[in-house]
Design a protein around this nucleic acid. Structure first.
Lengths: 157, 157
DNA sequence: ACCTGAACACCGTTCAAGT
DNA sequence: ACCTGAACACCGTTCAAGT
């Protein structure tokens, strides 16, 4: 609170006119964070859209390691969070995942990507080279890609 | 610090004889946390060992939601953390995953399980029923199971 | 060897008071 | 409508002093 107020050239107490408390302010920061990865370009294939989305989320975590872990503490309830989730829904739908499976598949995929990004941002991979971490993330993406393909297959069967 | 000292019937300052600072104390708490999920019984199949391990980790997160997220902030460097990781290594080896792939597969699997457990402990799934969360975790486990099988397949090919 | 009192620098938050 | 001073209850941490 003190640092934010300082940046604004104001005392900490002035902030309470605009936010209820520190948690409320952090909610706003998380919302801003989500603004960083907009819906991916519509022209791309579903798998490319998912890839850029995942890459953007990860990059966002690298940029804001102290706030980013908060994403694991809140459901995607705000409008900005829903926008991102809906982009994933559309991609999964285009991939051929049956409608009644989409919600769960999204949860699993998002949790895996977020878990990786938070781990990296939090420093759990600090003993690994950047190249190794990149390779891990690529492997995670192909693993999830295969999972989505398998979910889509079952509809045809 | 104050609460820990209180439980011990001592002033906060007394703790600094035994730990360097708060971060050091938390390291000890995390280490204790890892003691909760011991290496799974040797007699089980590799997949069953992995399953009980994952279930135990998740249960531990549910029990200690405030400390558990710290696991995403530290590499498995302490002896107790290594013990758990080695159990996963052995299971993956028994599954037939080639030696040079085991480390990465372990990282991916652990990150996914941990990401889920931290999400649940942090309250990201608070709008979902317990049954739904359980189903999600089961789906995650079979997804990872398939991934490991695929990694093992490639050796034979 | 182990603990404490006093002190320091720092938090988030309230509320009456200012403009 | 917006900001501040003063105050409160709380942190983690140090260090000289106690036993």
């Amino acid at each position: 609170m003190a640092m934010v107020a300082g940046r604004l050239g104001v005392t900490p107490m002035a902030l309470y006119r605009h936010v209820a408390n520190k948690a409320d302010l952090l909610d706003g920061v998380v919302e801003l964070l989500l603004t960083e990865f907009p819906s991916p370009p519509e022209g791309l294939s579903w798998s490319d859209r998912l890839k850029v989305l995942a890459d953007n989320i990860r990059a966002s975590g690298r940029r804001h390691p102290s706030v980013f872990p908060l994403l694991l503490r809140r459901p995607a309830t705000t409008p900005e969070a829903r926008k991102t989730r809906n982009a994933v829904y559309r991609a999964l739908s285009d991939a051929g995942v049956p409608q009644d499976r989409i919600a769960q598949v999204e949860r699993l995929v998002s949790t895996a990507v977020l878990g990786f990004a938070v781990s990296e941002a939090g420093g759990r991979f600090r003993h690994h080279s950047r190249g190794q971490i990149d390779a891990d993330f690529t492997a995670l993406q192909t693993l999830l890609r295969r999972f989505i393909d398998a979910e889509a297959e079952e509809r045809v069967t």
